[in-house]
Each structure stands twice: as structure tokens, then as C-alpha cells.
Nucleic acid binder design. Sequence first.
DNA 1: GCCAGGACGTAC
DNA 2: GACGTACGTCCTGGCC
Length: 897
Amino acid sequence: MKKPLYVLDAFAIIFRSYYAFINNPLRGTDDKNVSAVYGFFSTLYKIFSTYKPEYFAVLLESRTPTFRHEMYEEYKANRARAPEELIEQVPVILEILKALKIPMVQADGYEADDLMGTYARLCEEEGRDCRIISGDKDILQLVSERVHVLKPEKGGLYTDMGPEKVLNTWGLRADQIIDYLSLVGDAADNIPGVKGIGAKGAVKLLNEFDTLEGLYENIDTITAKAQKQNLIDGKENAFFSRQLVIIKQDCPCEEDIEKLAAGEPDYGAAVPILQRIGLKRLAEESAAKAGEEVVVPEEKSAAKAGNYCGVVSAEHLDKWIERAKEAGIFAFDCETDSLDSVSANPVGFSLSVQSEEACYIPVRAPELDCIPEDVIREKLKVILEDENIKIIGQNFKYDMKVLKQWGIYPQGFFFDTMIAAWMIDSSTPSNMDYLAEQYLGYKTVHFADIVEKGKTFDTVPIQKAAHYAAEDADITFRLYEILSVKLKELGMEKIFSQVDMPFVDILSNMELAGIHIDDGELAEYSVELEEKLEALEKEIYYLCGREFNIKSTKQLQEVLFEERKLTPIKKTKTGYSTDTAVLQELAKEDPVPEKILAHRGLAKLKSTYVDALPRYINEDTGKIHTHFIQTGTETGRISSKDPNLQNIPVRDENGRRIRAAFKASPGHVFVSADYSQIELVVLAHLSGDKALTEAFISGEDVHGRTAALIFHVEPEAVTKEQRRIAKVINFGVMYGMSAFRLSNELSIPRGEASSFIKSYFEQYSGIKDFIDKTIEKAEETELAETLFGRIRHIRMINSRNKMEKKAAERIAVNSRIQGTAADIVKMGMIRLAGELKKRQLKSKILLQVHDECILEVPDGEVEIIKPLMKEALEGAAELSVPLRVSVESATSWGEIH
DNA sequence: GCCAGGACGTAC
DNA sequence: GACGTACGTCCTGGCC
């Protein structure tokens, strides 16, 4: 069998790459723009590593006007001439292509599209598959069983567009694309089309009449008057447009495909050119691909330590401050005497204004006179508090907290390498040691290697300290250079800079603020719980006839399933399960399980919350300062730890007493704002489902409306039971719940559960489509994307293991919903924080619990804050269904909800 | 005595 | 096997 031919439209990729970086171009030697070179060869390399083509050609545009220009002088007349910065890059690209020994084809008088058409035909004729790499919809007209288009997606992956895929995506056969374009036209190429006929209209017409000829032969059957007239008026334009959009298949060009044998590109030959123009990373990548025989002088240097110095005189410090000002950008890192940022004091700072160079400014060091603390503070302020000087950090929330407490309020923070790395791939670690290894191939000095156990950074000799600290700033700068490019490539520049970066400042303030808790109240509750637990233990031991550790599932299994001979219900990896569902079931035939359940519940409260929370009270502030981790989830949510304040009980009365111990400071109240059903609202928007949208717009009670729909009853006639079922399904859908699980959850037969789900998707067919489309897109791109462009890699989506695949599908669907909701909440909080600052209010944001945001508000501000919060959060995004936020206030957290 | 992994349970 | 996202606690068993 003949190996497939791959063809690539060079200028399409060049343009795309250039404009992908238009807001922040890549600069190489002499500050020249190299975005297009970088983008083009990243794409090319990716294609070679993914598809390993044996036959390959880069197709170039004609150097002279084409037959289309001769036919129609307005052709592409609307196009502005390409910018000089882009044109300059073309010769370099051709030079590199030549060095790589990649076959190139050009035919004067014809466009690259026509060359594609010609090769598509040649391949068809000799029974060879053809793959065309192009994002242009015009090219789809060439698609056939043998000829597929590979459409570039985010993250360097491609959608394989075969005949079926074209039909599914466009609602048209590939051979109808020509007629479609003839009707719709193309403003960019100045192709007229038929006035008044848009994309939807054209698809509908072609579905009905099949072809342009069919349409005009039966024009009298069209009932819509205006449309009919438009078509009659536009007939000439339509057929004229067709001549322009139709791709030629008979260019004069190399017809012997065997001559387009590509083999492995000569990567080594590209290295010197790439180095000359200053594309270091690509040069390194090329060298690596070429294998070891190519020695790149700079390759080693990328992984070597930079030039680091200690700064102990005011004059020396001034020089660095000046350098940072000049550069307008610098990487910054704090060393402190504690990991606990609330009580940490600075021990030193490091700065880097370009990669491989950094300094360390000690504030305290053994056996050394440092620059006085106040002098360092005043000088650093100049660059840290200037909003026009960009600050790069790694986990900058930490530095931000230390600095604020030290009297510096950073203004120009704009890039966190840890958060960037997490957004690029949330499933891999984002600590600096890992990132340095991963992205730079650099092994950093580890903290534990220079600081003796139990000691702090201010005890480290200055030589070692300076090297370690300066390296951190240097590595941070180097990571920035790489990660900023990757972020752009994935289309996340906007959400990164407009959402996740501003959010760092907000989280740092929330953590510094802390929340008050009444430990006396908890101490009393602890005693109460202890008494109840002891009583339960006694009862359990009496009933079982012996003592054992109730908290040990292993011992509990022995008691329940061996001694008491109860029937095991489900297994775990290590034995029989004793979880809540099992114990509830067992309680029907034995008195012990119920006691165990009660014991478990109270023991959990006591150990996880009642006894644990007071230990987190900070000695200095008297408050609990949780840590919010912005990189803690794979979906874009934040997490909370030490302690986790996002899972404080709320559902039952016992648990609520814990919330009740969280008190607003004297003279303050908590004001809490809660997004109503945010994930279902997001689902309604993302899916565009008519019925769900309607349910939200017309009524408060979306579960009731859902019940009415799936049970075919009037909304007023919905029973409680029906509503409960609808609610379970509403949530279940977002998690990809199966009929099996639903039947368990509702204690109904599997068949009944299936029919509920079936009925649900019949009524909410838009949701079904949304799920299908999400999965399909994930299969093509291995990504799930939120409404605002945050991505998550879905690596198992094409797994041959059915279970893994199903799990990946659920993850893909849920991530889009959960992630979009998380984006919205973050955006709302940014708006809110902005308002608080603008109005100089004293209210502080304390907590965020995914769809809820809690503020501590001085009594005098309550009436201003309530409407302000509602407005700020509801206006976070403009969706097809309005976002609703409810606001409540109270002096303890327990009174809210 | 330390640590990793499992089971379980809390939140959204 | 069968519901997504987290974190904390306790127990167990392996290791030093």
C-alpha cells in the first residue's frame, strides 16, 4: 500500500503563527519579530513527530498574480498588505525549510489551495491517501474517502476531517462546500456570494435542493418571499462566486509523488540558522531531535547556573534597582524565616532582570553586615510599587503576603510561573524544582540541602544562601520566558492575565485577613461529644460482647461480618466495605450498625473540626488563616488547606454547631453571597438547551420544572417525590451518572432509572448534544475547555480501555461545567474586590467556597455591601440565563443559609 | 518512629 | 465497574 502524502499550506501557518502572538510578539536577535518562524516550525515539528510522514510537501503561494485576479480584479482586494515584520520572516522560513530538506512546491499563477487540489487529485488517481493540513474551510471541498483535512486545534493537535466529520460538523457533504461558499461568499477574499443568505440559510437550502443548480431549478418552490428574491437577484453572483471558490486540480507542478519523499528532516542543519536569529529554544529542540552528534554550544548553558552575586552595599543595590527599572520587568523572590507566611519575616530578596543573571540581597545573614532593613525597603518599593514595572514570581501569593506585612504593596505583579504551569497542565506538579527540571532540564539546589533541619534561612552562610536564592529568581525568569509562550499557544493569555493573576492579590488579602473562631464554644462542644462517644462505645461494646477499635474498618469487618454474621454488601480493595450506605442497609437487620453510624458521625466532627480547628488559631492575630491553593484543582476551582475551610459541615444540626463557632469580629457581621445553581446555569448556557434555559427564565424552582418535564405533568402538579428525583438527575447529569448509580441513589429498579434518564434527555435534548459535542471535541483535541478558554488535558479520552474512556468522558463534561462556574466566581470576586477598593470600603473578603463568597463587614457598611456584592457577582458574566446571587448576613457563619 | 496508601466522610 | 472536584483523619503495614 502506498504511504500517504501530507501537504501543508505554508502561508496559512505563517499568518496564523504571526497573529497568534500579535499582542506580545516573540523577539529574537536584534529584537526582530520571530513569532512566525517559531510558530511555523513548532507546527512542522509537531506534525513530523505526530504523523511521521514519509511523503510531505510544503506548498507555497504563487509569486505572480493568479488566474483569479485576472478573472476578477476585486479578488482579495480588501486584504491589507501583510505587515513588514511578517514579510521579513518569510525568507528565513524558506532558508530553514531548505536546510531541513523539506520538499517545497510552488506554481506561478496558482494559489496553494490549487496545489492542494492538484495533489488531492493525483493521490486519488494513484490510490494513495492524502492529508491536507489547513484550518481553512474552503479546503473541505476536497475531502473524500482518500483525502482528509487535518484541522489545527489548540495544543498542537489536529482534527481529522473525513467525509463523515465534514457532514457532522457542517451539516453538508464535502462536495456541497463549493455551493455553500458560493451562496455565503467570503468578505475576507471579497467573494460576493448572494446577499441576504447567511451560513444557516445556505445549509438549509442545500439540504433541501442538494446543489446550486438544484436550487435554481426549483426556485419557485421557495415560499419565503424575501429569500426567494435575494436568490433571484443574486443568481449571477452565486455562479460567479463559484468559479472563484472552486479549487483547481490541474496546476503545473511536480506530479511524481515519489519525488516528495521527505524522510526525517535534517534538524541539525536548522540549528545554526535558529541560533543566528535568536530562537534558542527551537534551536535546542532541533539539536535534541538531531541526536547527539550535533553539539550545540548553548545547549549546555541553558541548563547551567547563571552569574549570581550578593548585594551588601546601598550603591550596589541601586545598580540593580536601576537595571530592573530599565528592563521594565524582573523576577522576584523572598526568603523568610518561616513557611507560615502570616508570621514570616524577610531574610533576603532576590532579583533577576534577565535569564542566567540574578542577585541576592540579604536582610539578615550570619557574620555579615547587611544593608539596613529600612534602606532595602525604600529602594525595593521603587520597583515593586510601580505598576509599570512588571513583576514575575513563583507562587507570588507567598511573597505578596510577606511584603505586605513588611510594608510593601506590590503593584506590577503580572506573571506567576507556578500558576502558568498549572494552567498549561494542571495534572503535573507546579513546584519550582519540578518545573526547572521539566522545562529547563535544570536541577535546582533544594532547600533541604542548604538549610539544616529545624533551622531557618537566616542561619545559612551567605555564599550558599545567595546562590540558592538568586537561582530561584533566575529560574523564575527563565520559566517565564518559556511558559508565557506556551500560555499564548494554548489561547489562555487572556484568562491568565485578567482572571488568575489579579486573583492572587485577592487570595493574599483573604489569607492575611483570617477569620475569628470561638474556641471556648468548641471546647464545650468537644466535651459534649466526648460524653456521647463514650456512651455509644459502651453500648456498642455491650451489644458486641467485646471491646474493639470502632475506627478500624478492619476490626469492624471482623465484628460485623464474622462475629455477627451480617451479609457483606460490597467489597473494597482490601476487604468488605463498611461505609455509610452499607451500614444503613445492615441496620435493617441488626442494632449495631446504627450505633456505629452515630459514632462515626460524631467522631468525625470531633477529630476533624471541633478539636482540630482551634489548633490553627494564629498566636499573633487570634484568627484562623487558611491557605487557598490556586493550583489545587484540575478544573480551575481553588482549594483550601491547613485548615480546609471549604468543607466545614452545614447539612445537619450537629455539624452546624461548628459553623456557628465562626464569629464576625466585634462591630462586624458576615455577609455571604451565594450563586444560585451556578453549575446548572452554566450548563444551560453552554448547551444552549431550550427547555433548561426556559426553566431558569420562567421559574425559581428549576428542579420542579425539570420534574414537570420528565414526568409530563403540570408544574403545579409535581409531587415532592418527583421533584426529589428530578433534582438527583439534574446533578447526576453533570457528573455523568449512570442508570446503575441512579437506581441505587433513588432505591428504584434499574429499568425505571434508565427510563427517567431517557426521558430527561428527550426533554433536554440540547444537553445531550452538549455532552456528545464535548466528548467528540475531547477525542480530537484531548482537551476540555471552559467558556473563557481555560483548558484541561483529557488524556484517557482515546483509551482503548472502555472504563478509562468512560471516566475520561465524564471528566471532560464535568470539567467544562465546573471550570466555567469557577471562572465566573473568580471574575465576580475580582469585580467585587475592585469595587471595595474603589469605594475605599473596610469590608474584607474572607472566604470562598466554590459558589459562595463570605465577607466580614463593619456594621456601618452592611447596607452598602449587600447590593454591591449582588451586583458585582451577578455581573461577572453575561450568559443566556441570568446569574442569580442571594445575599445574607449574620454575626456567625452558622446563621447563614 | 516515619511514611504511603486505603477507607471513609465533609464540602460544593 | 458504575458520580465530578477537593482535603483531613485514622488505621495499617512496610521500612528504618
